[in-house]
Design a protein around this nucleic acid. Sequence first.
DNA 1: CGTTAATTTGAGACCATTCAATTTCGGTGG
DNA 2: CCACCGAAATTGAATGGTCTCAAATTAACG
Lengths: 252, 252
Amino acid sequence: MVSDPALAPLAERWARYAPLSKGDRDAILALPFRRKEVGRDHHLVREGQAPQNCCLLLEGFAFRHKVTRDGARQIISIHLPGELVDLQNSLLGLADHNVQTLTRAVVATIPQAALQELMDRQPAVARAMWIETLIDSSIFREWVVNVGRRDAQTRVAHLLCELLLRMEAAGLTREHGYDLPLTQAQLADCTGLTPVHVNRVLKALRGKGLISLESRSLRVLDLHALRAAGDFSELYLHHQPQALAAQAGAAG
Amino acid sequence: MVSDPALAPLAERWARYAPLSKGDRDAILALPFRRKEVGRDHHLVREGQAPQNCCLLLEGFAFRHKVTRDGARQIISIHLPGELVDLQNSLLGLADHNVQTLTRAVVATIPQAALQELMDRQPAVARAMWIETLIDSSIFREWVVNVGRRDAQTRVAHLLCELLLRMEAAGLTREHGYDLPLTQAQLADCTGLTPVHVNRVLKALRGKGLISLESRSLRVLDLHALRAAGDFSELYLHHQPQALAAQAGAAG
DNA sequence: CGTTAATTTGAGACCATTCAATTTCGGTGG
DNA sequence: CCACCGAAATTGAATGGTCTCAAATTAACG
């Protein structure tokens, strides 16, 4: 059985979080999975369920969200191609939130049992997976700050900055431009605002010359000003995990 | 060198997250640490730093927070005695937020290197630590929803419910009552509100007979109604981690 | 090319904020 | 033990950022 290259991006990203041996990489590439094409708004995980599989986004975008009693929806995070959207369920058992596709997507569903086995047998991979969940966690913290203590324009600008940097890291941008995978209603659900107000905020950001945005195609015209408008500082994305350096330093 | 019982609560809590062997427990109890008494508002971790130690709260309360450009503070989580407040820094390197004591506290500072070694040598302990960070993560997600999509009264009621359940789990309550370790200004920083409005909300909750609160002593008079007022559902606290059951089931 | 979703704009209402002042609480020293 | 002081809590009045409601326009998609 030849290892399928579909999981190569996974091995590649995890290798950025922790040093992986050839054996580690091979074990990742040998994970069993089922490739699945799904439409927009497809539910990958439902709150309260105990999923038996983990979903790796091969193509397309997804988001996690919760719904309050009176039907308001809060989006908790956005996921880009190459990300495992529900790793935590393997360890926590019951899903505490929903995961849904933003766009048409291709996912690889990996049996949780296989992931458990991988964690058990390849501690370095487990370490990398842990770090991935910790970076998720850091992004959640920043989102708490964003919706809790920033005004509407700052919130939206901050989100657009975050997406720019993460898209760049994923190779999905060209010259500070990317295809925004969110409707204005979904931007509102990310930022705790109403769609109407998001529309006005975007108009203001356009008016100031910070961005251009038409038919979902976003371009950041003045990154410095957008970062300032969004009170944005990228430390929380941990794109240069210090752990690697620290480990290398400790080993040398 | 006899193992100090000070770390026993840590071993106990981690054992709830993953099955620990005698060797695992001994390794935890053998961790080196320095006991330190600190005053209120003492900084345990500062954003941007690369801490060399982890802080275990032995007595007292702490909180994590970030400050926006214009000086607004958002509290991201509250920590009870027995919790490791900055485990993630061992793996991420640079702290992306501040940690500060809410009250006078006693902490055990554990060298990160020792924790790293523990993770490497006792995979079951590493697993438990990972699960602890995942539960943290789930609480962050709920807080995003709380500040993003709930009105003021619901936010405060939700927070009071969360604290009640966590205090109960830590054995810090009597008859639905506990000592609230937060000022109204700090409650405001948790919920993304102003101190003035928190005061009015608390008055309303008292007026409805849901709680009594005087001089920091809180009693939940009508838990059912407070849960309803706070749109509260405890799934996200993962107080009964399903992973344990799942692992036991898989092993049996 | 029709149909539905998404975006855009306006006007009025409201929840939470800001600003300001007063009262109460908690701790400390005389 | 009481007086004092700063911090915390409380209350009022006015402002304002965001929401709600409603309608029109444009874009997306089969």
